[in-house]
């Protein structure tokens, strides 16, 4: 596998399609403004193209999570703008942002964050339920298809506390993917998993990227996960210092 240097600082340079799935434009986020202020990200420009399998890497405090949260409309930059499929989300109110997250963004969390009172099946179904416009029959079909892809058909009635870490993360991936979002954001998705399970999860995400053309952006310290990324964006002190795209 070869790598090629990237000109990622330009908002328009990384996209495969003409409109990036998500774009950060000159995004700056400052915590604790004043004497002890922390500049989590500082003038970041980043385009995420459809089909990207992108790793955000960097030391702790480099701004990976803030970039990820800004891309996912969970956090709002103090300066700059965030576009999701061309729509400027910077001025949207809470409910409108919730709708953007609901319809266009899938999340995978480090500690899985499944709803404990729901079974594996219901956790995946939940995404479609809040989407709102999916018929019960279609919902059943899509959830069962997702469970088959995840290899969780036999565990579909189990609740999160009856599943292993790897199985829980698979359910979380299913929950993110089943609604067919524009982008899936994963915050350290393998950090709480052992080596073998991590490989399993990475393989699954990669397969979804290749087979279903799902767009993934994940923050990670995991060298192995970085190795599988097709694009690696490196951050230091809240700035992008490199954006490397690997050849297919």
């Amino acid at each position: 596998m070869s790598t090629s240097p990237s000109s990622s600082s330009s908002p328009t340079s990384a996209g495969v399609d003409s409109v990036p799935v998500v774009r950060l434009e000159n995004a700056t986020r400052v915590y604790n403004p004043g004497e002890n202020e922390v500049r989590a990200i500082d003038g970041v420009n980043l385009d995420v193209a459809r089909g990207d399998f992108m790793a955000l890497v960097g030391p702790s405090g480099s701004g990976k999570s803030t970039v990820l949260h800004s891309l996912g409309c969970l956090d709002r930059p103090d300066v700059g703008r965030v576009f999701v499929e061309g729509q400027d989300t910077t001025t949207l109110n809470g409910d409108a942002l919730a709708q953007v997250r609901n319809q266009r963004i899938g999340f995978i969390f480090q500690s899985f964050n499944l709803i404990p009172v729901f079974s594996a099946y219901e956790n995946i179904e939940f995404s479609l339920q809040i989407l709102g416009n999916v018929s019960p029959a279609e919902s059943r079909e899509r959830v069962n298809e997702m469970l088959a892809i995840l290899g969780l058909e036999k565990q579909k009635d189990r609740r999160p506390n009856q599943l292993s870490g790897g199985q829980q993360q698979r359910v979380a991936i299913g929950r993110a993917l089943v609604k067919r979002p524009a982008i899936i954001l994963a915050d350290e998705p393998t950090a709480n998993l052992d080596r073998r399970t991590s490989e399993d999860i990475i393989g699954l995400m990669r397969r979804m990227n290749e087979d279903k053309h799902a767009t993934f952006v994940f923050s990670t310290h995991d060298e192995h996960l970085m190795h599988h990324a097709r694009r690696v964006v490196r951050l230091v002190d809240g700035k992008i210092v490199s954006d490397e795209r690997k050849a297919a």
Binding site: G72, D95, N102, F107, N113, I130, L131, R175
Partner: peptide, 15 residues
């Protein structure tokens, strides 16, 4: 944290 997850997944505050 669970509420945060619901909100992150697109659940509205009113819900």
């Amino acid at each position: 944290k669970e509420i945060g997850t619901l909100l992150a997944l697109g659940y509205r505050a009113s819900s």
